[in-house]
Computed example of a mutant assay.
Amino acid sequence: MRILIVEDEKGLAETIRRGLTNEGFVVEVAHDGVSGLWAATENPYDVILLDLMLPLKNGYAVLKELRERKVWTPVLMLTAKDGEYDQTDAFDLGADDYLTKPFSFMVLVARIHALIRRGAPERPVVLTLGTLTLDPRNRTVRRGDTAVGLTAREYGLLHYLIRRHDQVVSKAEILDNVWDPAFEGGDNVVEVYIGYLRRKIDVPFGVHTLATVRGMGYLLSADKDAGAAARRSSER
């Protein structure tokens, strides 16, 4: 299995390279966006580890150009940047996963294996769960035939939940993946936004897909009667 690391911090890149080599991967390294883009388009890889802040061409630009060239290799973004919507922006451009530095090496390996198992489906992919669809290309959400208007934060929350559908996710996980890492408020903000989201994607359509799992977190599932929900949506 071949991995490309595009990371300008040479010490970190070498540490990851040695660790992945010890795990049995064949690893190549590029230290700037231009050489990373060239390597990613000229050679086949199972996964690309792509830093966001790169010299010559940043990770967003590299990722965008890869997808425009129809290179669908799974991309795991690595970054220390604390921007509010970095993760959502990366997913919109076609990233498959995201890790914020510093991260556990074992978590990195687990994420790589998960991406390899998932493979590289042709993109862009509209995310679908029952009658609920989310299109990352234009950041639109629909329940059946009805458009659902969401704020940027609500969209980021739904994007995270739909990618992890049928899994219970905790408030801490949601804060880590949807909110700015520098956010200093309490985790009750998650409960507030879950309520906002539920009132937009569930309540108007008579479904209950976004559930609270007491003491554990939240669970997004497909509507049980997708056909009925679709009919209700088309009648609105």
Rank of each mutant, 00 (worst) to 15 (best):
R2I: 00
E7D: 12
D8K: 08
K10P: 04
G11I: 11
L12M: 15
A13W: 06
T15L: 15
I16H: 05
I16Q: 09
G24I: 11
F25W: 10
F25R: 05
E28I: 00
V29Q: 10
A30S: 15
A30E: 14
A30G: 06
A30W: 01
H31C: 13
H31N: 15
G33M: 06
V34G: 01
S35Y: 07
G36F: 10
A39T: 03
A40T: 03
A40S: 13
T41I: 04
E42I: 00
E42D: 14
E42V: 03
Y45P: 02
D46R: 13
I48A: 11
L50D: 08
K57D: 00
N58C: 07
N58R: 05
N58V: 07
G59S: 10
Y60I: 05
A61F: 02
V62S: 11
L63C: 14
K64A: 13
K64S: 12
L66K: 04
L66R: 05
R69D: 06
R69T: 02
W72F: 15
T73Y: 10
V75G: 07
V75C: 11
L76P: 02
T79C: 09
A80C: 05
A80M: 04
K81M: 13
G83H: 04
Q87H: 00
Q87W: 00
F91M: 15
F91G: 06
L93D: 06
L93E: 06
A95H: 04
D96R: 10
V107Q: 14
L108G: 11
L108E: 12
A110D: 14
H113W: 02
A114N: 15
L115S: 01
L115K: 02
R118N: 13
G119Y: 12
E122L: 11
R123V: 07
P124F: 11
P124L: 10
L127I: 09
T128V: 13
T128M: 06
L129D: 03
L129I: 05
L129F: 05
G130T: 07
L134E: 02
P136D: 08
P136N: 08
N138R: 09
T140Y: 03
V141S: 04
R142V: 01
T146N: 04
V148K: 05
V148N: 06
G149T: 14
A152D: 12
A152T: 14
R153K: 14
H159E: 15
Y160G: 02
Y160S: 02
L161E: 08
I162A: 10
I162D: 05
H165P: 00
V168M: 08
V168Q: 04
V169L: 10
S170R: 06
A172S: 14
E173Y: 07
I174A: 07
I174G: 03
D176S: 12
N177V: 03
N177K: 14
V178Y: 01
D180A: 13
P181F: 07
P181R: 09
P181V: 01
A182E: 15
A182P: 01
F183I: 02
E184A: 14
E184P: 00
E184I: 03
G185P: 09
D187W: 01
D187P: 08
V190W: 05
E191G: 14
E191C: 01
Y193V: 02
Y196P: 00
Y196T: 11
L197C: 06
R198P: 00
R198D: 11
D202V: 08
D202S: 10
H208C: 01
V213R: 12
R214M: 11
G217F: 12
Y218P: 08
A222Q: 11
A226K: 09
G227Q: 13
R231A: 14
S233R: 05
S233P: 08
S234Y: 04
